[in-house]
């Protein structure tokens, strides 16, 4: 039996203070992610995907309900404990890369390790290893402004993985990429999931991206509508077709 990485129970999020106009972006969401899974969250724009992911990644606080990552209740984390949790357990890839433009690719990637007090020598070794695996070794000395979108996202991916997080989150990581770079990134993420065993939870609104996942959770108006699991022997294009079909029925 695989270990559970994320466990979400009755998660709700209401935007707006009591006296203001309120909006319920998430309505009692329940699901869990097991170790080593590659899960996609799909839904139309405005359905609450980013809201959900931000709460899982501790960037925002739920109105009610619980989120446990590796058994730890994250709503309880505050201050330094929260910062340390982010630094050690979580990796995140943003749609707009969020690289620090004043640091080289290598420095960007090494930052999470510096924060954990890893020695300079070890940091260099790990950067080299991760960068080689992700095929960005030649780019290490460059600044983000000297990289293409796809390259930037690979660097961001390396930064998110360098400290061996319990889970890698991605909020539409291919959103700002051209189709070729998007495909490369998705293939890379699949490899990372398969070879390094990293659990991944990725939000996307596009069926092609979603087809790389092993399981897809569909949300609509803040609620989980359905789930789709890719069979072990099912190939990607077949799965892609299945997703498209499902989306078609969804829309009606």
């Amino acid at each position: 039996m695989q270990e559970t990485i994320i466990e979400v129970n009755n998660l709700r999020k209401i935007y707006g203070k009591k006296n203001e106009k309120q909006y319920e972006a998430l309505k009692a969401v329940n699901f869990s992610v097991k170790d080593g899974e590659f899960v996609g969250i799909m839904g139309a724009s405005g359905s609450g995907k980013t809201t959900l992911l931000n709460m899982l990644a501790t960037f925002d606080r739920p109105t009610s309900g619980s989120v446990k990552i590796k058994g730890e209740e994250i709503a309880k984390l505050k201050g330094n404990a929260l910062a340390d949790f982010r630094a050690s357990r979580i990796g995140f890839i943003f749609q707009d890369f969020n690289l620090l433009e004043n640091l080289t690719a290598a420095e960007n990637i090494g930052l999470p390790l510096s924060l954990q007090g890893v020695s300079a020598k070890k940091i260099d070794a790990i950067i080299t290893k991760v960068a080689s695996e992700l095929g960005i070794f030649e780019l290490l000395k460059n600044y983000p402004s000297e990289l293409s979108g796809g390259q930037k996202q690979r660097v961001a991916c390396a930064r998110a993985l360098v400290h061996n997080p319990a889970i890698l989150f991605g909020d539409e990581p291919t959103g700002a990429l051209d189709s070729k770079s998007a495909r490369e990134l998705l293939e890379l993420m699949s490899e990372v999931n398969k070879n390094m065993g990293t659990s991944i939870l990725m939000v996307t609104h596009d069926a092609f991206s979603a087809s790389f996942c092993k399981r897809i959770i569909f949300i609509k108006d803040g609620r989980i509508e359905r789930e789709l699991i890719r069979e072990d022997n099912q190939n990607r294009s077949n799965f892609y077709q299945e997703v498209l079909d499902l989306l078609g029925t969804f829309e009606q």
Binding site: N102, L103, L111, S114, L115, G117, A120, K121
Partner: peptide
């Protein structure tokens, strides 16, 4: 130097150089 790989030193130096 090694010092730059400690905590946020690298970031601060990067800011300054930038």
């Amino acid at each position: 130097t090694k010092l730059a790989k400690k905590n946020l030193n690298g970031f601060t130096l990067g800011q300054l150089e930038f």
